[in-house]
């Protein structure tokens, strides 16, 4: 089986670890070999969190620079920061809802303009799907379901070897009972928006 490499970047607390967990479970259900690595600890106090997910016949759980097939970004400036993981064939999916880093609040740095940011990503990769995932999460009834919205968009692009049913089953099994409904709704909303934009 071919190898597909997916990088997820987020800000600590955005729920990317749960997103990778769901992806992993979905792969298990679909009987697709999967390996993932993530960074815990200090990085979680509001810092950048990165997960690497490798599907198919490879042993490594780490993704080198330039070797991601897909980049899923939970926050636009973090997506931009992770461009070193991409190449000209990479598909990039990002939320445009920004979480202003504290260095911007204190005035020691400036947040890049979102239009410039999108133009740059478009120019350097194969495809960019960008939308406000936070707005869709709110629409789904749970602001914290940004991760599920993005998961929906990811699956719609067909860039990873998982089917909608696999992921939905994993969401039902692995996310908190109280949120299953809003999570599934969020997944659907992300899926539809990627279809429109794709």
């Amino acid at each position: 089986m071919d190898t597909t490499r997916l990088i997820i970047v987020a800000v600590g607390g955005q729920g990317n670890l749960l997103a990778s967990r769901v992806i992993g479970e979905a792969a298990l259900i679909a009987d697709v070999p999967v390996r993932m690595s993530e960074i815990h600890g200090m990085a979680q106090r509001g810092g950048v969190v990165e997960s690497a997910i490798v599907f198919g016949d490879a042993s490594s759980t780490v993704i080198s620079d330039g070797e991601a097939d897909v980049l899923l970004g939970f926050e636009p400036s973090e997506t931009l920061r992770a461009l070193n993981k991409c190449n000209a064939n990479t598909v990039v999916i990002t939320s445009l809802a920004l979480l202003s880093p504290f260095t911007v609040t204190t005035g020691s740095s400036v947040y890049p303009s979102l239009s410039v940011l999108q133009a740059l990503i478009r120019q350097k990769t194969a495809k960019l799907i960008a939308f406000d995932a936070a707005a869709l999460a709110t629409e789904a009834g749970n602001v914290l379901s940004v991760n599920m919205v993005l998961l929906g968009a990811l699956i719609q692009t067909g860039t990873v070897p998982l089917q909608v049913e696999n992921v939905k089953e994993a969401i039902m099994n692995k996310t908190s009972k109280t949120f299953v409904e809003s999570n599934l709704k969020a997944f659907e909303l992300g899926f539809s928006v990627a279809k429109e934009l794709g």
Partner: peptide
């Protein structure tokens, strides 16, 4: 043949996001 990382020289400076106390 190593993977080609795109030329990132024209990327504007991205604000740092150091970990912080909650």
């Amino acid at each position: 043949s190593p993977a080609k990382v795109p030329d990132l020289s024209d990327i504007p400076e991205i604000p740092q996001r150091p970990p912080n106390l909650c």
